[in-house]
Computed example of a mutant assay.
Amino acid sequence: MRALEEYIKRKSSVLSEDVIKVSSFLNHQVDAGLLTVLGQEMADAYRSRHITKILTVEASGIPIAFAAALAMDIPFIYARKSKTITQTDAFTSAVQSFTRKVTYQVSVEKEYLAATDRVLIVDDILAEGAAVRGLIDIVGQAEATLVGVSVAIEKSFQSGRKWLDSAGIPVHALARIARMSAEHGIEFIPSDYGGW
């Protein structure tokens, strides 16, 4: 998606060959206009797939999941990184954060995810895929149907996309980064809709 690629070129910072900072528009300060467009793009890609729920993980995935859910007119759920006193019965999975180097037990209350649901996992960035794997585990525990994964930015040179492809899970990335460095900038791969 050219608009997102332009935002990334203008407003991100490449901190290393593995780390890109998109805090000014995507996952700390959020550009609501851009997120509205990204959510609509995700909705358009999955409109015929009869999604009933969007699932993400707190906190970075929440804005884009909200935008996609709003465009699809369906609920979204976010997996919590810490248990609350109101949480009684939940699906849980361990997720290692790529940027924080911490493992979280994420959870979704069972009353919000059912075997009848058709789930789209949405996140801001796909790198090694740890968060997505944890969410896939939760969808499996609920015996719901995983329809696919949609992300704003995919770092294609890391293992997340390869793992999802090998598992036969459709991936829709709005911007795919082939490589990046502070010296040479960012090179993109043309985005696709996962081949369906």
Score class of each variant (00 low, 15 high):
S150W: 10
K11P: 11
D117N: 07
I20G: 03
D89Y: 14
S150Y: 09
H28P: 06
A65T: 11
P63V: 01
V108E: 06
E5N: 12
V171A: 04
V171C: 06
A175Q: 01
R176L: 09
L70K: 14
R80I: 08
D117R: 06
M72G: 00
S23P: 05
V14N: 04
G160V: 01
D165H: 14
Y7C: 10
A182L: 14
G61C: 09
V95W: 02
V139R: 00
S166P: 03
K101E: 14
K53C: 10
E109R: 05
L70M: 14
T103A: 10
L55K: 05
E6I: 09
S166Q: 14
T103H: 11
V37M: 12
G194L: 06
E17T: 15
R161I: 12
E17A: 12
A173Q: 01
V147I: 15
T103S: 13
L26I: 04
G148R: 03
L38M: 12
A178I: 05
G39D: 05
R100A: 08
A178Q: 07
T52D: 02
Y78F: 15
E58C: 08
A114N: 15
L135P: 00
A59V: 12
Y112G: 03
F76V: 01
V37Q: 06
D73T: 05
V37T: 13
E154F: 08
L164W: 02
L126V: 03
A114D: 15
Y46K: 09
Y104N: 02
V122W: 04
K81N: 05
I169T: 06
V151Y: 05
D165Q: 15
I8K: 04
G148S: 07
Q29S: 15
L174R: 01
V106P: 00
L4E: 03
F76P: 00
L70F: 09
G140P: 03
A127E: 04
E111C: 13
M1K: 09
L55A: 06
D124V: 02
V106N: 02
S93K: 07
I54H: 01
I20W: 05
E109K: 08
V132P: 00
S16T: 13
I64T: 01
G160E: 03
G61L: 11
L55M: 06
D123K: 02
Y104D: 02
M180R: 04
Y112Q: 08
A71N: 06
